[in-house]
């Protein structure tokens, strides 16, 4: 592209698109000793199969009501949103789990995780702030 100004304008226009497709991340409270999760760990925690972290502390699952990050999480879990909710209701009404915290947006999600030891959430990595940390999900 010969015209630097035109290049800059095109790059600027592409910026929102870049934000939308930014990589989502698993976000934990910063006091967590967990440095990385496997795909199976992710499913185990999010689907209520594991209720405790390796150090014995309680897992607090936080989810968005809807949105792109929520949809991406469901894809990672291999569940529809309805299947995800139904699975948790099965746990809650048989005494085998506590319903995930549900928040309206990613800012709320990150704020909740920052103040809640043991919390785990899924959001745009760019939303990370003090009090939380993003962890990698290993392929296995």
């Amino acid at each position: 592209m010969r015209n630097p100004l035109l290049f800059a304008l095109v790059a600027l226009a592409a910026l929102p698109l870049t934000n939308v497709t930014a990589e989502d991340a698993i976000i934990l409270n910063s006091t967590s000793e967990v440095a990385a999760l496997s795909k199976d760990d992710l499913k185990d925690y999010y689907l209520g199969r594991k209720a405790s972290w390796p150090d014995g502390s309680k897992v607090v699952v936080v989810v968005l009501k809807d949105g792109t990050s929520h949809d991406n999480l469901m894809k990672r879990l291999g569940k529809s949103s309805s299947q995800f909710t139904t699975g948790w209701k099965k746990l809650v009404f048989t005494g085998k789990g506590a319903m995930p915290e549900q928040v309206d947006n990613e800012d709320e999600l990150v704020t909740f995780i920052a103040k809640t030891p043991g919390a785990i959430g899924y959001a745009d990595a760019g939303k990370a702030k003090d009090g939380v940390k993003a962890v990698a999900v290993k392929s296995q």
Binding site: A51, S52, G56, S57, K58, V92, F93, G95, A98
Partner: peptide, 18 residues
């Protein structure tokens, strides 16, 4: 009709009643 209460009073322990 059902009503339940659950809690995690200490790490690793869940209690509840429905």
């Amino acid at each position: 009709f059902a009503l339940n209460v659950t809690a995690t009073p200490i790490d690793r322990l869940r209690i509840g009643v429905q």
